[in-house]
């Protein structure tokens, strides 16, 4: 089994003590060594142009930031290698940032930055470009205007196919991540991809599927030909308050909780899901994702402990 660790472990969006240093390059330069010390030699990168707009190029989450600080993607890879990271397994774009104004504006921006992220993924030698299948429910419904949800999804499908074709041309797999807060949460995505070309893959994100009420092992079996990446996320959360409709669905208004937990700290049997993926013929990288951790170093080490002691690696 191959593993990578997602730098989405670093929460940049929400308030926390000592959060500001996360905008400076030195913080990230050290982060790679910490991840490497945790036994992970490849990383998954969330692609977030949000930081480009604020001139935060110290945050290595876009092609622009990498070009500014390291000259180009090659320079970035060289720096990573010098600090214990041998490669980038995948790049994940959530286009929710662009979902405002109008559907047309959203689609234009999502395609522009989708193509940019694919280029970056290809330059980095990544296996997968992971794309959130839709923006959040809240963002879509705020933006729809006269457009129906059905029409929006049709346009989204066309966009996904164009991006998948572009990714394939550049040697990267497009994998759709269906977050529990998106329009295609849970099993709904299976119908969405039916009939699409076989260059459209799925990312099995275990916590998101579970929160959406999906039997993860059955989902893997039912979609085995489409599985392009597996993201091992843990959770203890049950969405009984329709948090998925909130502006910030990761923070359930009904009762505050840490939705995403480090591997082994939630209720999911990630080992069983990993086995199911292997049995389904998946031979790609398993991404360990401790999204938006409250304690980054602990998360890295907890993930390593889980890999060593609970996964049949």
């Amino acid at each position: 089994m191959q593993f990578s660790f997602s730098t989405e472990v670093v929460d940049l969006d929400h308030q926390a003590p000592n959060r500001n240093k996360r905008e400076s390059k030195y913080f990230w330069d050290e982060m790679y060594r910490l991840i490497s010390a945790g036994g992970f030699c490849r990383i998954d990168i969330p692609y977030e142009p949000k930081w480009d707009f604020g001139g935060r190029s110290g945050i290595p989450r876009t092609k622009r930031s990498v070009d500014i600080k390291f000259g180009n993607t090659e320079g970035y890879l060289k720096f990573l290698a010098e600090n214990g990271i041998n490669g980038i397994s995948s790049v994940h774009l959530d286009p929710t940032l662009f979902c405002r104004g109008s559907v047309g504006m959203f689609l234009g921006a999502a395609e522009h930055y989708g193509m940019e992220a694919i280029q970056f993924a290809a330059e980095a030698g990544a296996e997968a470009f992971i794309l959130s299948a839709t923006p959040t429910f809240y963002a879509v419904h705020r933006t729809l205007g006269e457009t129906t949800e059905t029409e929006f999804l049709k346009q989204m499908k066309d966009l996904v196919q164009r991006l998948a074709d572009a990714a394939e041309e550049q040697g990267v797999k497009l994998c759709l991540k269906n977050e529990y807060w998106g329009l295609l949460r849970g099993e709904i995505i299976s119908d969405f991809v039916k009939g699409m070309k076989d260059n459209v893959f799925l990312d099995v994100d275990t916590a998101h599927l579970s929160i959406a009420g999906t039997d993860v092992q059955k989902f893997i079996a039912d979609n085995q030909k489409r599985i392009g990446s597996v993201t091992l996320t843990d959770t203890s959360f049950s969405d009984d308050g329709e948090a998925y409709k909130q502006v910030m669905p990761e923070f359930p208004a009904k009762s505050a909780t840490w939705v995403f937990r480090d591997p082994g700290y939630g209720k999911l049997d990630l080992s069983a899901y990993a086995d199911a993926a292997l049995q389904a013929g998946f031979d790609g990288t398993f991404h360990l994702n401790c999204r938006n951790s409250a304690s980054i170093c602990r998360s890295i080490l907890r993930a390593r402990y889980y890999v060593d002691h609970s996964l049949n690696a």
């Binding site: 940049l12 969006d13 929400h14 308030q15 926390a16 959060r19 910030m248 990761e250 923070f251 208004a253 009762s255 505050a256 909780t257 840490w258 409250a294 304690s295």
Partner: peptide, 20 residues
């Protein structure tokens, strides 16, 4: 940075989830 909750009513329970 973005403040994610309006009001946390279950503050003690929430604290114990992470103890930070």
């Amino acid at each position: 940075k973005t403040v994610p909750y309006k009001k946390i009513d279950n503050f003690r329970d929430y604290y114990y989830e992470d103890k930070s």
